[in-house]
Every structure is written in C-alpha cells, then in structure tokens.
Design a protein around this nucleic acid. Structure first.
Lengths: 214, 214
DNA sequence: ATGTTCACTAAACATCGTTCATAAACTGAA
DNA sequence: TTCAGTTTATGAACGATGTTTAGTGAACAT
C-alpha cells in the first residue's frame, strides 16, 4: 500500500492524523446526508456507521456521543446559515438589506428544515451553539444589528429605540416565522415572502394609524 | 351490532365504562405529571405505567400509542393555553388586550415549558392540533384576530392592512419569543415583559421615523 | 352455570445508545 | 527485519426504549 512512506514527513499531512480526519469527515458527511434525507430522528449510530462503512462502536473512536455528532452537524449548519446571511448582508441599502436578510433566513429554513430544527428547536443545542466559543451565531446576529445601526446612523429610526432590542425583535420574527412554518405548515398557509413582507411592513411603519394627539 | 345488546344504566355510573374512563384519566394525569416534573423526553411507557399502577402493556388497552398519549397531553395543554388567553381576552381596550394576550401567552410558556414544546415545537403535533377538529387552536388564534378586528372597526389601523396577516404576525412574534426563550435562554437574556413591550411598540408604532415625503 | 368479553400481565422482539474485551493494523525504533 | 506500543476497528453484550403476543383471571350476559 504505502511502503515508500518510511521517510517521516515532518510538515506534510501525516497519514496517521490525516486518515483520522478523513474518517471524521466521512462520518459527518454521511450523518448529514441521513439528516437531510430521512430527518433528524433517523440519525442513528448504527445507520451512520453502516453508511460510513464502520461498525457502530467505531464511531466512538471519532466522536464522544451521538450528541457530539449532532452538535457538529448543527454548528456546520450554523456556519452555512451565517454564510447565507453574509451574502445577503452585502446589500447596501439598509432596508433592502433587512429584507434580503429575512429572505435568506427563510430560504435557509425552507432548504434545510431538519438542520434548522437541529440548531434552533432541539433542546440543548442552540444554547451552546450561540453562547459557546462558536462565533457563527453571534456573527449572524451582528449582521442584523448592523442594519439597525446603519439606520440609526442615518437618522431614520425613531428616537429612544434600542438597537439591540430591535435586532432581537427582528430575529424573533424570523425565527417565529420559520419555526411555525416547520411545525404548523398546515395552519400557516401564507408564503414566507408574504409573511415577511407583512411583518417587516408592520415592524417598520407600525400597524396603528399615526395619531396627532397624544 | 350492538345497539339493543345492552341498555346500560344511563344515570348510574356503569362500572364497565366508568372504570375504563377512570383508568384513562389516571394514566393521562400521571403522564402529565411526568412531563411537568421530568420533561417530555422522560415520558416513557414503562414510567407512565408504573406511576399509574399498571404494566406497560396495559397502556395499549387505553391508548393506541405513546404518541397518542402525548397528543392528548398536547391537546389538553392547548385548551389550557386557550383558557389563559380567554381570561386575558376579557380586557376591554384593544391595545391593552393585545398586551394582556401577549403576557398571558408568555406566562404560559414560562409556566409550562415542556407543554409548550410539546404543542408547538415537537414535529407532528401542532399540525394536527391546529388543523384538526380540535377548535382550541383556532379559538386561541381568533382571540388575537379579534383585537385587530376591533382596532380596525375603531378606525385605528392604517389603511390596507389585512387583519389576518396582522394576527399572524403577532402570533409569530409571540411564538418566536417564547420558543427562543426555551431553546436559547442563555442568549435571550431580556425578560418576556421587555421583549414583548419592545416588539409591541415596534409592531404598533413602527421603528422608522415618520417620513413627510413619499 | 356457562360461554363470552374485558382488563391485565409476563415474556418476548426489534431497535436504540453505549461499553468492553479483543484482535488486526499501523508506527517507530532496534 | 523484528518487535513492542499505539491506533483503529469489531462483535458481543448491557440496559432501556416502544410495541406485540399469548395467556390468565375476573366480570358480565344469558
């Protein structure tokens, strides 16, 4: 197989750790495919192992837990969400950027519902993914905050509004929309585009008729 | 096949169906206590059975599935949520009623997080609970819609706003707030009161400074 | 009294996550 | 090459899960 490997490669990828990393990656890839194809509840150690060409026990040489695999999947999904949001975040005009961010968020939830559920709806994941050392969650949230910061700098916001609270409210709307779409799709018939348009319209311009007298 | 077969004592508690109903109720009560005390994932057939004084197999004489037990629990929770909202819905002033509804919704999520998760965050439950014959979900949603209907009748809404979309947006905000509080409590440090106040303020009055020119 | 239905249990099955003893394969030096 | 030590992988097993099945009394209707 590799008899010429007698010379120890000092700076190159040593086969020992190299193949270990490959195995990890293959396991994760197969796990992701299972979640995407058959849903999160189908993510079984034995299924992952069979798909990756291992026995179930072998997975524990590469991951501590089934939960560790799921967590890694969730973190990768979080990075994917951040990428999608970052792409939309390039829009120059703040209001259009806000809409683009919302659409990208909704699109991610629609494209990878099981990943979204894993990140934000499974108990114990979002807490660590957002609060831990992983900065993807914070970076994604900062993208939203940036919009309102820009609006504030441009003087387009009402007085006395807290930027972080605004960003939080917007995120709440996005998450509420996507997660309800996942669990109550039968009840939530409207498209994400329409829902987002209505929510943004109300959030920005208010639902009440402007009142002359206090 | 069984109409003339037996004329059970209509007014006396016929032991036959009476005790069956008691068993059902006892099973459900114990199941609810387990969910409340130890969380939804601790809801195990053997645990329920032991708590109710049965063997695990006996539960299948009263319920089709573990899922059937959970579904019944979720439907009862939905009725409890409806009751809480109905109480808040007595507020006369529409705007104060909106706030009261939001606070009641948030309070329910805080008081019974596992029930809320069961109803709205577990796959496959909300869809049937809201869309099925169970009218609790629709009634709860109608309470929200009524607020905006009243606001519209009073002429306090901006022109061109769809009432159902408004109600949906408000529900989305409530659900986003409660569910994020459940999964990302470490990240969502603000209290529900503050979150709701901010969201309502923005939703009603808009975040943008009123613009004189189109 | 008798035959039928009902409520229930013990045991078993398949599957789950996880652990353990063990064996094969690779690694680095003598 | 040879040989110890480490790494990598496996099969069997353990406890727990949801669910099914065969069997056992007790209650019921006639």
């Amino acid at each position: 197989m590799s008899e010429v490997k007698s010379s120890p490669p000092p700076a190159g990828g040593s086969t020992r750790a190299r193949r270990k990393e490959d195995a990890r990656a293959r396991i994760l890839a197969e796990a992701r495919r299972i979640v995407l194809d058959q849903g999160f509840e189908a993510l079984t150690m034995r299924r992952i192992a069979e798909a990756a060409g291992y026995s179930a026990a072998a997975l524990y040489l590469h991951f501590e837990n089934r939960e560790a695999i799921a967590r890694e999947l969730g973190e990768a999904g979080m990075r994917a969400l951040l990428d999608a949001l970052a792409e939309a975040g390039k829009t120059v005009d703040p209001l259009q950027r806000l809409k683009a961010l919302g659409l990208a968020y909704a699109a991610f939830g629609r494209a990878e519902p099981e990943t979204y559920r894993l990140i934000f709806m499974e108990p114990g994941f979002a807490a660590t993914a957002l609060g831990g050392k992983d900065a993807a969650g914070a970076a994604a949230f900062a993208l939203i905050g940036g919009v309102f910061q820009d609006l504030a700098t441009a003087g387009r916001l009402r007085d006395g509004l807290d930027i972080e609270s605004l960003a939080l409210t917007f995120w709440i709307v996005l998450h509420g929309m996507v997660s309800l779409k996942l669990t109550c799709s039968a009840f939530l018939v409207a498209s994400e585009e329409d829902l987002l348009a209505t929510a943004l319209d109300n959030l920005l311009h208010g639902a009440l008729r402007p009142n002359r007298e206090p």
